[in-house]
Structures are given as C-alpha cells and as structure tokens.
Design a protein around this nucleic acid. Sequence first.
DNA 1: ACCCCACTGTTAGTGACTAACGTATGAGTG
DNA 2: CACTCATACGTTAGTCACTAACAGTGGGGT
Lengths: 191, 191
Amino acid sequence: MIQAHAVRLFTDRGYEAVTVTEVAEAAGVSAMTVYRHFPTKEDLVLIDQPARLIAERVAASPATHPLVRRVGGALVEAATALTGGDGDEAAVNERFLLDCLRLMVSTPALRARHLDSQYALQQAIVDALGDDATTPDAAFRARAATSACLAAMHTALTRWAEEDGQTELPELIARALAASFGDVAATGRSD
Amino acid sequence: MIQAHAVRLFTDRGYEAVTVTEVAEAAGVSAMTVYRHFPTKEDLVLIDQPARLIAERVAASPATHPLVRRVGGALVEAATALTGGDGDEAAVNERFLLDCLRLMVSTPALRARHLDSQYALQQAIVDALGDDATTPDAAFRARAATSACLAAMHTALTRWAEEDGQTELPELIARALAASFGDVAATGRSD
DNA sequence: ACCCCACTGTTAGTGACTAACGTATGAGTG
DNA sequence: CACTCATACGTTAGTCACTAACAGTGGGGT
C-alpha cells in the first residue's frame, strides 16, 4: 500500500522531487514506518527478482548445453512463469510492474540500484551452474556468460517498459538473447 | 591529488566509514572544495570510461561483421590502447586504476554507479553503430548485443582487479567475450 | 483481567549535498 | 606599479536520506 502511493507520487512528480516524508503522509503513516518496511527510498520502487526461481531452472538445465543457452533458457522460462498470470489480479500486478520499470529506467539512482541487484542475481545463477564453476577459469567463463545473458534480459525489460508491455516479455527476452548470442541460445524449451 | 587521498583512505578504512570531510582534511582543503571538483562522493573513485575512444573504433569497424564482433573488437582494441602505456608513469596509473576497481567491486554503492555509467557508454556505442539502429527493431538488437558485450567486459574488469592485474586486460576481455559469444567475437584485430 | 508482542510514533543526531555569499591569488592591461 | 577580472577556495545555513534509542498502542492467548 505504501509502495503503491510511492510509485504513484514518483510517477507524477519525479522520484527526486518527492520526499520520503511526503510518501509517508500520502499513505497515512509516519516516515519511520516507511523505513521499517523499505530499508531505503529506492526499495520503494525496486522489484525483487525471483533469484530462487531462476536458479532452480538453471540448475535443472542439461549441463551439456552451452552456458548462454542454459542461462538464457532459464531466464525465458522464468519470465514465462511469472507473466503467465491469469486474468484478474495478474493484470494489475503487471501494470504496477511496468510503472516500476519505467521509473527504474528513467531515474539514474534507481537504474543503478537495479543493475546492481542483477549483480546479486548473477552470483546466484553462477552458483546454480554448479560443476561449471570449479576451477577459477571455469568460474570466470560462467560469470562472463551469465552477466552477458542478464544484460540482454535487462535490455528486454527496458524495451518492455518502453512499449508499455505490448509484446510478451518472454518473447522480448528471447529476441534479445538471439541478437546477442545467435539463435543457439534463444530456444527456451530444451526437452 | 584529492582523489589519491580519497582512494587511500577508502582502501584503508572502507568507503562508507570515511566521510567527505575527512577526505578534505587529509588533502588539506575544505569539504566544499571537494564537492567543487567531484560532484558526488562516488565520483572520487569512479573512472571515466573512454566512451569517445571506444565509439570511434566501433564506428570504424566493418558493418558486415556481426554486432558482438564489432563491439567486442572495439572493446579489446580500446583496452589495448589504454593499458599499453609505456613504463614509468603508466605503471602508477595502472596501480591507481586497480585500487579504484577493487573499491568499485567491493562497495555496493560504487558498483551500482559504475554499472550505470556503463549504461551511458552503451548509448554512445549504439549511436556509433549507426546504420544498424535505424528501425526500432534493429536498435533493440543493437542495444541487446552492446549491453551483453559490456557486461562481459565488466566481468573481465572484475577478474583483472581480483588477480591484481596479473593477466593483460585485453586478453581477459577477449576471453570473457569468447566465453559468452564463442570465438567468433573474440578476434580483436579485423583487418 | 493479564501479559506479550508486533507494529507504530517521537526525538535527536549523522552525513551527503546545495545555495548564497565573501575572500584571496594570479594573469593580463593601462 | 596600480587596476581589474576570472578562477579557485572558504564559511554558513539549510534540506534530505537514514539511524538509534525510547515510548505508546492494539490484539491474542492464558
């Protein structure tokens, strides 16, 4: 609820032009209460990426496939699972997600934080790759491939927000991956 | 000079544990003077990426090559041109650059800002790609490929700082690109 | 009726950052 | 040498994000 008021105010008047106190007043609570639920002002907009979900799909992918295909496929599958919500409340959630994304893309501070949160996601994915990260050299390759996949996904997220969710998100991610790695990594299903 | 004092203090006691006032005192100036030369505390550590240099090499790359090869090649060439400094002062610069990088990797706030500055670099590179970004769809593919290349380079920079500059930076970047895109994009020279 | 506990509010304080204003140093010109 | 002007530096006061310590309030179980 606090978050909804915050995103609305930020969208209307700009992120930096709105103080936390104003968000608190709009939500009918004290500023301290806001900080108790959201550690920083930025967390009012940031969306927690489903690291668990993605990591599981990475771990479940066949280890024989190239790295970018394992990670890219997991990203497409996770996006499919998330945006594939049915009808009613899912649409509201998607509107809210798009609002947050637009703020993240247009506000430097939020953009920076979001990119850094992808850095944490990268760690989780590299761990999920497991056997491919034993030697320092293999870990380096795993990190490189993973960060490249996440960068492509970020581009897809940006485009998704720009065109207001017209194209399905999994398709955009697949196209971003294809543009970066060729068609080899774009095939999400791998069974 | 202010920057040198700042990086030394940050490395010794941690970025957040050092106030801007302390940096100013160590440098023998006022806090206001620090802010006049560095807009934010983070700018004391951030290194300006040579966007001009990279963009020129991207623009000069043959348009027939795949996107990731054009961008990746330009990144390797730019790194070669930069770290290829000769002997005396270049070594000091490289030590300083490594200190800054270590701080950037280990401090969340700096890491976030650095990732966002790569976002600006991405814009410059996409513009330099020129003809490949006329239609919205081509621009999307260009952004995806560019961001993936930059993410791979960031992984190489991180590794470079971790192993204290043992391996040559251009080679690390080439290996990160190869791990992501296959050997097609790793060939830096293209003449 | 009692206590416990999670949630909330108040106050005071730190630190990054800005704005407005006054001061000195150093180069160029008469 | 005096004058001037630009550039850099310092001081003060203020805003805002964020933290710590302490106090109040409401409902749930015994």
